[in-house]
Amino acid sequence: MKKLTTDIRLIIGFVLAHILMYFTFQDKAVFWYIFTASLLFLISYAILNEELEDQVPFSSFIMYGAVSGFALFGVFWLGNSLIELLNLPFSKEISKLYSRLSPSLLWHYIVLILVIIPGEEIFWRGFVQKRVLKHINIPIGIILSSILYASVHFYATHWILAFAALIAGIYWGILYAWKKSMPLVIVSHLIFDLFLFVILPFY
């Protein structure tokens, strides 16, 4: 743990992520512009400071990625269905999130697929989690990395987004630690987001 707190590259990357995400969530009107620019910067930082892993053949990472992405969406769909069934107040929070952050223009979907999804995985799993796991064991490292990932989502002022990020972060963190394939987790994230925003959106 002591070595973890002295990992300067990790600390700088995490601080930069917080600064960038703080500004990203400040204004809905420029959200997609700032989010895209932030992820491009974090991708560059991650690639310069950590080697990405890809230990799974193309056909396998496509299959595992698609199945795992669909499975995670299924978990979220069940959770949302339960919230609606029990008429819990979280339903309004989810509705507000969709209206504020969902892609609405063609270029939003393009940058979501080409920049934002790969960027989040490259930085948070390929850089943050990988560096964390150099210093502590895998289960604790995945949880800690996922908490760090979730922490930047609090700037959206909707706690349920941070909670969703925590669950998804743990899921993709386990997947990356298990298969050691960045393309696999990117595909998983892509399939999840396609269902969440395009195929079966909750709102």
Rank of each mutant, 00 (worst) to 15 (best):
I47H: 00
I186N: 02
W159Y: 13
L86K: 14
S181Y: 09
V67S: 02
L78C: 15
I170H: 08
N80I: 15
F202Y: 14
I8C: 05
Y22S: 06
W178S: 07
F90E: 15
A162K: 02
Q129G: 02
L10C: 04
H135A: 00
L175Y: 00
Y64A: 08
F73C: 06
P183Q: 11
H153K: 06
L97V: 15
A177Y: 07
I142Q: 03
S99M: 13
N80P: 04
A71D: 11
A66Y: 00
I11C: 07
F76R: 11
I170P: 10
P139N: 05
A17L: 03
K134E: 09
I199F: 15
I113K: 00
W107Q: 11
N49S: 11
G69Q: 09
F163E: 02
F195P: 06
V128E: 01
Q129D: 03
K180P: 02
H135P: 00
L40M: 14
F61E: 10
S68E: 07
I186Q: 04
R125L: 09
L133P: 02
L16R: 07
V198E: 13
F41Q: 01
E51N: 10
L161C: 00
N137G: 00
E51R: 13
S188L: 08
R125M: 06
I110R: 08
Q55P: 00
L48I: 00
R125Q: 12
L105I: 08
L112Q: 11
L4R: 13
Y45V: 04
F35Q: 11
V115Q: 09
F70D: 01
Q129I: 01
G65S: 10
A71H: 11
T36R: 04
Y109D: 04
G126Q: 10
I167M: 04
T6H: 14
Q26E: 13
T6D: 07
H18T: 01
I34K: 12
G69N: 03
D27E: 12
Q129A: 03
V30D: 08
P139D: 04
Y22K: 12
F90R: 00
F127K: 07
A46Y: 05
E84P: 05
F73W: 15
S38I: 06
I8A: 12
A29V: 06
L114S: 13
S146T: 11
S81Y: 14
I191E: 05
I62H: 08
G13N: 11
Y22D: 08
Y98W: 12
R9M: 08
S95R: 10
W124F: 15
G141P: 05
G69D: 09
E53Q: 12
L133G: 03
I62F: 14
S38E: 04
T36N: 11
G74T: 06
N137Q: 08
A71P: 07
L175Q: 02
A71S: 13
Y98K: 12
I12Q: 06
I191H: 02
N80K: 15
M21V: 01
N87E: 14
L133M: 14
S104Y: 09
S146E: 08
S181D: 06
S188T: 03
A165T: 01
L148C: 06
V185S: 01
A150H: 03
K96W: 02
I34W: 09
I138E: 08
L196M: 15
I12D: 06
L85S: 15
A150L: 09
L114G: 09
F73P: 03
F61K: 10
G74Q: 09
Y45S: 09
G173H: 02
L114T: 14
M21L: 14
V115R: 09
L190G: 03
